[in-house]
């Protein structure tokens, strides 16, 4: 994973959150954003952003971290090679 790739994923996630703030409190917004990632992000993208939150949580906003906490880890299970 390149840093550029991660930067783009973080940008995408924060953009999704910013466009869904109207849903209410952080918990609700995070749930909506997590659902969006679940529906539209590839497995590898979910893996990368979950790895990021482990290694560099400071690069993500609080709502983004909350979003990733709600993301089903099953959806990011590495594919069989």
């Amino acid at each position: 994973m390149s840093d550029q790739q991660l930067t783009n994923l973080i940008k995408m996630l924060e953009q999704i959150i910013a466009n869904n703030l109207h849903h209410g409190d952080d918990d609700r917004v995070a749930a909506v954003a997590a659902d969006h990632l679940h529906k539209f992000w590839a497995r590898s993208m979910k893996q990368q952003i979950l790895a990021c939150v482990q290694e560099h949580p400071e690069r993500l906003s609080a709502v983004a971290r909350l979003t990733l906490a709600k993301l089903d880890p099953e959806a990011a299970t590495p594919a069989e090679v």
Partner: peptide
């Protein structure tokens, strides 16, 4: 069939540059 979405075009490009 895979039950997870795949990569979109811009994500394919990013992954290509990253070597995956």
């Amino acid at each position: 069939l895979d039950d997870e979405p795949g990569l979109r075009i811009p994500n394919m490009f990013d992954a290509a540059i990253a070597g995956t």
